[in-house]
Simulated scan of single mutants.
Amino acid sequence: MRPKMLALSMLLFIAAFAALFFGEKRETSAYKDEIPERYMRKGFQPYVSAVDKNSPQLRRLASELTAGCDDTECRAARVYAFVQQKVSYLSDPAGFELIQKPEETLALMAGDCEDLSILVSSLLWNIGVETQLVATDTHMYSRVCGIDRIRFENVVTQEYAGSLTVSDTRTFLPADTAWAATFEGGSGRGEYTVEFSAGEPLNFYLFPDRKEFEKMTRNMDYKYYEACSAEASTGETLKCHIEKGNVIGVRTAKASVFTFKAVKSASLSADLRFEEDEGVLCIPLDAAIRGSQVLPGMGMNEDNITEKYVIDIR
């Protein structure tokens, strides 16, 4: 009897092990070669299931955000702006992959890239805009397809006109004054429309940095960008290439009210990143991107991405 019992025990152990091993494999095999390994630990279904397509709370909020919108492009831009600007990025605890429901993300007003993507998608689904989730080996974002490029660029220009104004100044300059402001808008180099006006003629310069401005105040030789400067002028509109850290400097001999504005040029083709899927144009809505002057359609640098998967959540 003992050998038979031992054999039976071994068979039961093998059966239990096989059920555990192959059962787990069957649960995740549907997602093999379709999603990154980090999602295969649970399968992708929890992320898809977290997208709430029919919620009175989300529908009410999305309706308020998109009031006055007549098309998908406007609705996508408005919802993206809310999540990207108002909901903070918050990483999961170390070693854990938490999946928040959109209502939980709103209650916390924070979440990681998956949570923000789920929230964007949920808000848009609740007002009739279908979305997809896009997963890379390190990231996730939402996207909307069937976008008209020209209409979307026009919507972004209208919706983000205020955020594209990176400097707007009005000040009184006493006689024999040198005034300066360091350009802090955005990052990297960009093209800006610079407008200034003054009651009395003055010299307006764009300097590489504050050191060059200080050289001017001490009557030393100094460097400035001639294309974005004007001397003995009461006002100009200039097209300028400006980098963060550049300095706008003014020198006036007579007292005057001085106004100055720098607006990022609305040529969005270099900023917006569209994706094409079987001839259909899609716009990424990566709400996890932080920083100033972030527009819908801006995306992460894809140079280091080795895997990318589009998840249909219909």
Results as ranks from 00 to 15, higher is better:
residue 23 G to Q: 01
residue 62 A to M: 07
residue 25 K to L: 14
residue 308 K to I: 15
residue 237 T to A: 08
residue 74 C to Y: 10
residue 310 V to S: 11
residue 122 S to Q: 14
residue 211 K to L: 11
residue 251 R to T: 14
residue 287 A to F: 02
residue 125 W to R: 06
residue 120 V to P: 02
residue 10 M to H: 14
residue 48 V to L: 12
residue 281 L to A: 02
residue 197 S to I: 00
residue 74 C to G: 09
residue 17 F to G: 07
residue 284 P to R: 04
residue 29 S to H: 09
residue 191 E to A: 02
residue 69 C to V: 03
residue 41 R to C: 08
residue 305 I to E: 02
residue 136 T to F: 13
residue 134 V to I: 05
residue 117 S to F: 06
residue 142 S to Q: 03
residue 165 T to F: 04
residue 52 D to Y: 10
residue 100 Q to H: 10
residue 148 D to L: 13
residue 144 V to C: 00
residue 285 L to K: 03
residue 141 Y to P: 01
residue 214 E to Y: 01
residue 191 E to T: 05
residue 84 Q to E: 13
residue 75 R to L: 07
residue 161 A to W: 02
residue 52 D to Q: 15
residue 46 P to W: 04
residue 296 P to S: 09
residue 62 A to S: 05
residue 181 A to L: 14
residue 279 G to P: 09
residue 116 L to W: 11
residue 141 Y to Q: 03
residue 263 V to A: 15
residue 146 G to W: 01
residue 34 E to P: 09
residue 176 D to Y: 04
residue 248 I to K: 01
residue 74 C to W: 10
residue 292 S to I: 04
residue 253 A to R: 15
residue 148 D to H: 09
residue 64 E to W: 06
residue 114 E to A: 11
residue 13 F to V: 11
residue 113 C to Y: 10
residue 301 N to G: 10
residue 213 F to C: 07
residue 42 K to I: 04
residue 266 A to E: 06
residue 22 F to L: 10
residue 306 T to L: 12
residue 240 C to P: 04
residue 148 D to N: 15
residue 248 I to P: 01
residue 143 R to W: 10
residue 39 Y to T: 09
residue 3 P to M: 13
residue 240 C to V: 01
residue 189 R to K: 14
residue 31 Y to W: 14
residue 121 S to F: 03
residue 73 E to R: 12
residue 163 S to I: 11
residue 18 A to E: 14
residue 20 L to T: 08
residue 177 T to V: 05
residue 189 R to T: 14
residue 206 L to T: 03
residue 147 I to N: 00
residue 70 D to N: 13
residue 174 P to H: 09
residue 35 I to Y: 08
residue 166 V to L: 15
residue 114 E to P: 01
residue 2 R to W: 14
residue 200 E to Y: 00
residue 127 I to D: 08
residue 232 A to F: 04
residue 159 E to G: 03
residue 165 T to V: 15
residue 142 S to R: 00
residue 198 A to D: 06
residue 65 L to K: 09
residue 7 A to C: 06
residue 26 R to F: 14
residue 110 A to K: 10
residue 44 F to N: 13
residue 231 E to I: 03
residue 78 R to L: 04
residue 238 L to W: 00
residue 255 A to L: 01
residue 39 Y to C: 07
residue 223 K to G: 10
residue 218 R to V: 03
residue 39 Y to I: 11
residue 233 S to Q: 02
residue 171 T to G: 00
residue 194 V to D: 07
residue 302 E to T: 06
residue 182 T to C: 09
residue 262 A to G: 08
residue 295 L to C: 08
residue 283 I to V: 15
residue 107 A to F: 00
residue 126 N to A: 05
residue 270 A to Q: 15
residue 194 V to T: 06
residue 303 D to P: 05
residue 174 P to R: 12
residue 70 D to A: 12
residue 69 C to G: 05
residue 61 L to Y: 03
residue 288 A to P: 05
residue 282 C to G: 11
residue 288 A to Q: 06
residue 27 E to F: 10
residue 15 A to E: 01
residue 243 E to M: 07
residue 301 N to T: 06
residue 31 Y to K: 03
residue 137 D to H: 12
residue 278 E to C: 02
residue 178 A to I: 08
residue 219 N to W: 04
residue 102 P to D: 09
residue 169 T to M: 11
